[in-house]
Amino acid sequence: MRVVLAEDLFLLRDGLVRLLQAYGFEIAEAVADGPGLIRALVEHRPDVAVVDVRLPPSFTDEGLQAVLEARRQVPGLPVLVLSQYVEQLYARELLADGSAGVGYLLKDRVFNGDQFIEAVRRVAGGGTALDPEVVSQLVARRSREEPLGRLTPREREVLELMAEGRSNAAIAQRLFVTEKAVGKHISSIFSKLDLAPCDDDNRRVLAVLAYLNG
């Protein structure tokens, strides 16, 4: 799998390159600024891009802007955005075009190599990887209102994990239940939230996120 990496701090860039290579990824190019990132993304069309939000030369949300621009030119290009802090507004913008293959995680998640790599693979495969912090804020904001308030605590847990972009199998493993039980919870959530049921994992995640963002 080919990766384009954007990170301005040399130490972190180096660490990420080594981590990704150790898990068998091929680094197409590692860049250190926004303009370089757009060029690399359009040129290499990688299987996935791993991008730091804050990049030179402006040291603002240059990475995010570059990714959004690249996705306009190459629709559906899978991108995983990393940041020192997560911002609802940015998650919303990443998800705004409605196509899958989006990730938005806190930089600290890199510390847990296995889970981070799992997230990179998920995004590359057209899935979603949202930071638990983003999701819990999203859910907390709507939880005072109906119908989200009607979910049982367990259903709420499943909803949050699903919104993070995890598969049924991963949710089952996380909650120590069977996949079948997870499926039951999910259909109950969908009927309570009045969402049309669907079998495709990625589309289901997007439906849930669209609901939470609405």
Binding site: R54, Q84, E87, Q88, Q137, R141, R144
Partner: peptide
């Protein structure tokens, strides 16, 4: 702590988007 000193979205995007972000985070 950084958020309390100077929220990054404020320097990234300016007052308008920072207030929008605030609105999203508000219950």
């Amino acid at each position: 702590l950084v958020r309390g000193i100077h929220p990054p979205v404020l320097s990234d995007r300016g007052l308008g988007d920072a207030v929008r972000a605030l609105a999203l985070a508000s219950p």
